[in-house]
Design a protein around this nucleic acid. Structure first.
Lengths: 365, 365
DNA sequence: CTGAAAGCGCTTACAG
DNA sequence: CTGAAAGCGCTTACAG
């Protein structure tokens, strides 16, 4: 009887099946099983029959059918670029917060991965096809332009690298965070402070540079363009940028400290320093930005500027759900000014006092 | 005219709208826009009209409606436990592979997070409601029992901690990986080798213990139960377990090396050693398992046993898609024997030669 | 308190 | 080569 077995197990039970088994309509079954508010309409005895029938048939509501009828998927999308070369700590911390908050609201989360924001912008439209109710953009790099983002779908961004119309952005006070860290470095006696920045032209890196320069200025340390070095936002990026700089400046005075635009860059920076025998923080201090897991597990542990990444992810979920709900109540207005989280200076062992004797950049081939 | 604007922008265009605009039926529009094989039925001229109309109306197929008609969501689910306390490196590496492979097959990925496998087992059923076509279980801890997993939905597991009926498991040769690492430690002269194991009773930890014991046996090193210490699979777990052990064995002989059941435990172990002033690898060698980012970014870098986690995630996607396709061809058989990846010994600085002089466990309060 | 009808937007046979 | 019909499984008004 493989065929009969097939027909028995081949299809999940529907509301109609449950209704039939309980001797009521599919609609009554729907009211009892899937709808919270109308369930009081059904008599207790009927309810009971329906619930028992559903249990016996292992009834599961079909999400697609429900979404089609409701125009609501109970699913949030997250779009982000994740590099091929392994894990992106920043993304994972944010995602953690998103997943937890979505779960609290009984929302599912679908992750869309992009290779490149500018190249894959069209793919964003493909995501907004009814399978998600709204979309969270993580650190988007989108050039302003009309028709960029689909209408019909609410958006929230985290760390947007440009102003996005009709999109609320969740960000942190990066300028102040950078300022506090550089002020801390100055307080440790450092004066020749390098800044390994992120890719130029993006909002985030610019804000960190602004904080860096403000702190230098208030300490009356002249800004030296030689000490502002751009790097890709990864450990490899930090390592390569610093290696290159050290090679180019061999024999010159070593900076007292390096303030890196994120933790990954700082990790790579420490690798490059270790390669040429420089000790952190004895010979040179290093600081990061983000306070990801990498900062806590590196040796020495990395002084950094904490952004509450999981909390920011969670906030994005809250904002997105508010906007989704708002779609159904036209006329009301919903604010779209950015939500700004405070940063926090995290002092750890990778920053020490300025060395008594000036170091030189080692000569290595 | 806010109302008219509302009705104009308030709803996305449907196939019927496109058909109307192009002067054809919705079905013709469907054939041209959404169906690959029947599109040749339409004349080139009609095609063109339809495509243009769709572009003008910004037509996007509705995923829910399509899923309902097709019984296919083009979405894969991933279920995993992710602790509240930040990021789980193991999960993130696997997820990376899953996301990339799913994207290659134009599948979306929905992440379901559980707090606890045994407590949240019922929630798995809730996920299998037509919104995903199949589900990947990451490191599931499920007690055998009938009715555990929903029928109607194909499953693939990665690192399943128990035998799951009708579920293909993707695993690595953990016993051999552990054996190779301990053999390497022995080759470095170590004889008193501690093993910080994962939670007892699970398949993965048991296999690593088996490899550990086999390597000891072949080196004629007697097994010492005192050196087999269970730990939770996190950095905190490793730190706490080792702290406790060191306190209990103060003044006794220090082990020459610690083989940890995963990288996170090893990181925690190194923290606990650093706290009492023991240097890695000068005083004691430490090795991990997995080769996650933590192993590459720790200082000293962590010797470990690489499991190709992203590749394993990708393989799970391939297996799952095969099983989903297979659902529609009853009668054919699909194998469900596990897929076993090789492990690879990764030698790094955290393992050094056995110290010349025996160390004692420091006395600290 | 309960049911019959219509519809969400798509696709898959079936007719022409 | 093209269209009218029926159906996927659910929900939301509308009748009784």
């Amino acid at each position: 009887m493989p065929t009969s077995k097939q027909s028995k197990h081949g299809r999940a039970a529907t509301l109609a099946d449950v209704g039939r088994a309980a001797g009521v309509s599919a609609m009554a079954a729907s009211a009892v099983l899937n709808s919270a508010r109308t369930s009081s309409r059904i008599s207790a005895e009927t309810r009971d029959r329906i619930v028992k029938a559903a249990a016996k048939l292992h009834y599961r509501p079909n999400a697609a059918a429900r979404a089609l009828a409701n125009r609501r998927m109970k699913t949030l999308g997250v779009a982000a670029v994740i590099g091929e070369s392994g894990v992106n700590h920043y993304f994972m911390e944010v995602l953690n917060g998103v997943l937890a908050a979505a779960a609290r609201h009984e929302q599912n989360t679908t992750v869309f991965t992009l290779h490149d924001w500018t190249r894959d912008t069209v793919r964003l439209h493909g995501f907004c096809d009814g399978r998600i109710d709204g979309l969270i953009l993580i650190a988007p790099v989108l050039l302003p332009g009309k028709g960029l983002l689909p209408t019909h779908t609410p958006f929230v961004s985290i760390h947007a690298n440009s102003q996005l119309p009709h999109v609320v952005n969740v960000e942190s006070d990066e300028e102040r965070g950078a300022w506090e860290m550089v002020r801390h470095l100055v307080a440790q006696g450092h004066r020749r402070i390098m800044h390994l920045t992120g890719p130029s032209g993006l909002l985030g890196p610019e804000r960190r540079i602004a904080g860096y320069r403000r702190a230098l200025a208030s300490a009356r340390i002249p800004f030296d363009p030689q000490l502002l070095v751009p790097a890709v936002y990864t450990a490899e990026g930090g390592r390569d940028a610093l290696r290159h700089w050290l090679k180019k400046h061999a024999g010159k005075l070593l900076p007292h400290a390096v303030f890196c635009a994120n933790d990954s860059i700082a990790i790579g920076c420490m690798e490059a320093l270790a390669e040429v025998g420089l000790r952190v923080p004895d010979d040179i201090s290093v600081a990061g930005f983000d306070d990801t897991l990498a900062a806590r597990t590196s040796v020495p542990q990395l002084a950094t500027v904490r952004q509450p990444l999981p909390a920011m992810g969670a906030e994005a979920v809250e904002l997105l759900l508010a906007r989704i709900a708002h779609q159904n109540e036209p006329g009301s207005v919903i604010p779209d000014s950015p939500v700004i989280f405070p940063t926090e200076l995290v002092v750890r062992a990778s920053v020490g006092p300025r060395p008594v004797v000036e170091r030189l950049v080692p000569l290595v081939r």
